[in-house]
Simulated scan of single mutants.
Amino acid sequence: MAEVVAADRAEGHGPPATADVTQALTPVVLSFKDELMRDSPLAPTYARAYK
Rank of each mutant, 00 (worst) to 15 (best):
M1L: 13
M1P: 12
A2H: 11
A2F: 10
E3M: 12
E3K: 14
E3C: 10
V4S: 13
V5N: 06
A6P: 00
A6R: 12
A6M: 08
A6F: 03
A6H: 03
A7S: 10
A7F: 08
A7N: 11
D8C: 13
D8P: 01
R9M: 04
A10L: 11
E11F: 00
G12T: 08
H13K: 15
G14K: 11
G14Y: 07
G14Q: 09
P15H: 07
P15N: 13
P16K: 04
A17T: 13
A17N: 02
A19R: 13
A19T: 11
A19I: 08
D20V: 04
D20T: 10
D20S: 13
D20F: 01
D20G: 05
V21R: 14
V21Y: 05
V21H: 07
T22A: 12
T22S: 07
Q23G: 06
A24L: 14
L25P: 05
P27N: 12
P27H: 10
V28L: 15
V29W: 01
L30G: 01
L30S: 07
L30V: 02
S31C: 08
S31R: 14
F32E: 09
F32K: 06
F32R: 05
F32A: 14
K33E: 02
K33L: 03
D34V: 01
D34G: 11
D34I: 00
E35Q: 11
E35K: 11
L36K: 05
L36V: 06
L36M: 12
M37W: 01
M37Y: 05
R38L: 05
R38Y: 00
R38N: 03
R38C: 01
R38P: 00
D39R: 14
D39P: 00
S40A: 14
P41Y: 05
P41E: 14
P41N: 10
A43N: 02
A43K: 03
P44Q: 08
Y46W: 06
Y46P: 00
A47C: 09
R48I: 02
A49T: 03
A49H: 04
A49D: 01
A49Q: 06
Y50H: 07
Y50K: 06
K51G: 03
